[in-house]
Design a protein around this nucleic acid. Structure first.
Lengths: 231, 231
DNA sequence: TAATTTGAGTTACGAGTCATAACGATAGCG
DNA sequence: CGCTATCGTTATGACTCGTAACTCAAATTA
């Protein structure tokens, strides 16, 4: 047994293994983007990288485990994409940052629609839960929170309702700034929920049948959020 | 070949056949509710009703076709449930009717969460589209539209933006009353989208991790819609 | 350097799925 | 009453996931 099995000094074997794991996930993502998580099978991934199907079980104990890993990675990518976009817009005012965050979120979802549906809908019972993935999404939630905090007037009635208490506990859990208000927290959750509703319906094609521009609806919703915040 | 192959005078054979079709769908729905659409297989449905798997192909050309039929039926059930609930509340004011419609929609989704996810998410590429199902959902959209029409003041600036034109065309397509306004149409779409966002996240369990009461969030959203409408 | 062990990848296999083909038997229909 | 359409069966093929047994190369150890 090797003594250097630490993350800092990976053995050559471990490096090659990690490389193979990464290639498996990369090929699997290509299949997801091409035709959805449904077509990600042990055989199809193996075929895409010139391996026989049973070899993949050296790296993932089951097909479901592979899909779970993809979900975590996709969560992380979505969260960090939103977070870096917000960091690159520190100069803008709060209203512009909220709009940018929403646009970035939507663009990611429309760029990888199959991955997005894989995150929030497909896994009906497969992946029980991914606390790691949830944590990575919060990475993008924080800049939205601070922007909404700037927009809301500090004189709002806070901390009264039971919902406010839940919101404050959640804010602490995800590491929100100390001066966060229930109003900002509530608006952040509702912003996320509204974006998700519109985007998931857009991806499902509901607005195609209605001959409606989902982008305009999205802009309306963001406008509504900013107005609710008093900005 | 029978001469009486009309819907009005079904042959005994046709009646029995319809009965079998209904039982297949009923058993399939039981499987959906129990463990999701994923576990609805030709074999499992057949086993549930004491038939060998190939026999089911006499009634549905494929597993996907069976699932598509389930989607249409579920759409119809959701739409008519909302519609009848609204009809039974004609006495209430518009605000109360909007709340009732939202509650009915959410309760249906929480009563049959697997069916609800089957409608809007699961079928990534399976069911291409179901115009029939869409039509049945609109059945529940109409009372929401008229209630919002009552709430909104008629003096709102209407018909100006390109989104307003899309909304009016959609209103005509689903048979909305002639005096409908783009404001009411827009609020209806956004109400639906917001409900869907919250409910799909609730079913996915997102709010469980956040220790948050989805019902309170839903009430907040409905309140927001009613306020936007000026009620 | 040489022997040993670790692990990656292979072929072979069993269980389960969808779907089709070919057969038998019941029951409706003229 | 006899015919035939329709139902449901068994048998089969292609595909899936996942396991078992085996081979071989490479890393580790002496």
């Amino acid at each position: 047994m090797s003594v250097n099995a630490t993350p800092e000094h990976p053995t050559r074997r471990e490096r090659l293994r990690q490389q193979t794991v990464d290639e498996i996930k990369q090929r699997a993502f290509e299949l997801v983007d091409a035709s959805g998580a449904h077509d990600v099978t042990i055989a199809s991934v193996g075929k895409a990288m010139g391996m026989t199907p049973p070899a993949l079980y050296r790296y993932f104990p089951s097909r479901e485990a592979l899909l779970a890993a993809l979900v975590v990675d996709a969560y992380a990518d979505l969260g960090s994409t939103v977070a870096t976009a917000a960091q690159n817009a520190t100069g803008q005012d709060a209203r512009g940052r909220v709009t940018l965050i929403a646009d970035t979120y939507r663009r990611w979802a429309l760029t990888y629609p199959r991955r997005y549906t894989m995150l929030f809908s497909d896994r009906s019972r497969d992946v029980p839960d991914s606390p790691d993935g949830i944590a990575r999404v919060n990475e993008g939630m924080l800049p939205l929170l601070t922007a909404l905090r700037e927009l809301t007037s500090p004189s709002s009635s806070d901390g009264a309702t039971p919902l406010d208490e839940e919101l404050l506990r959640w804010g602490q859990a995800i590491g929100a700034p100390a001066d966060i208000t229930p109003t900002a927290l509530r608006l952040a959750v509702l912003t996320w929920s509204r974006m998700h509703g519109l985007i998931s319906l857009e991806i499902a094609g509901a607005f195609d049948n209605m001959n409606m521009d989902a982008g305009l609806l999205m802009a309306t919703e963001i406008e509504s959020v900013v107005e609710s915040a008093g900005g």
